[in-house]
Nucleic acid binder design. Structure first.
Lengths: 102, 102
DNA sequence: CCAGTATATGTCAGCCTTGACATAATGGCA
DNA sequence: TGCCATTATGTCAAGGCTGACATATACTGG
């Protein structure tokens, strides 16, 4: 958001900030969710690249369509553990995972 | 282990194999534990580099000495989530975490 | 040898994550 | 529009993870 618009909103009584500020995350929590988000995106990218539906992917990683959807949406209920196990299950290499994280 | 010794043990009725084989891990599970092990080592390295005791580190990451010990020993009861949250808590960057994983 | 510090191991109640299921929204396509 | 495939959201019992505590073991200087 540019400065102009921000000032305009401020005049109208709004506050502008990052999602982390809004959710009152500590800097560490912020890093954590960002890192997790990278893995969520990586999972979705890998799935689309493989032309799989969530249903099909779910079968491969022995999970369910709903959980795959939550993973890709980065739902708070999914762990990095599950994300990494899912990525490994569809052939993502450590190097690729590292690349997604960095 | 060299070939000679392996044959010798085989004659004596022993089987020789990797830890993964012994524990009957699937290739994916093996990748998972290896990746986790890298993070465990990284945590220990970072702690020693910072000249912290497990007790002190535990306070920083709001955990307990026993759990830190389990993390560094790569106890099955510790999750990648906790490892990553701990690493972030002591100032490890995403890049460094990625480097440890790759 | 002992005391003191650091690390390792075992246990467990309480909370968090998971797969599964139901159901709702979304997006084409005829 | 209605139908179908896909994805999103809500819920929950069962199992996994966590911090805390107790205790054991390892290490070191005196």
């Amino acid at each position: 958001m540019n400065r102009r618009k921000q000032e305009k909103l401020a005049k109208a009584g709004w506050k502008v900030g990052t999602a982390a500020e809004f959710l009152r995350l500590t800097p560490q929590e912020e890093l954590y969710v960002e890192l997790k988000a990278s893995l969520c995106q990586q999972l979705k990218r890998q799935r689309l690249r493989s032309h799989l539906t969530q249903e099909e992917l779910a079968r491969r990683v022995k999970s369910s369509q709903s959980r795959i959807a939550k993973m890709e949406r980065c739902d708070p209920s999914v762990s990095i553990d599950l994300l990494i196990r899912s990525l490994l299950a569809i052939g993502t290499t450590r190097r690729e995972i590292a690349r997604a994280i960095a």
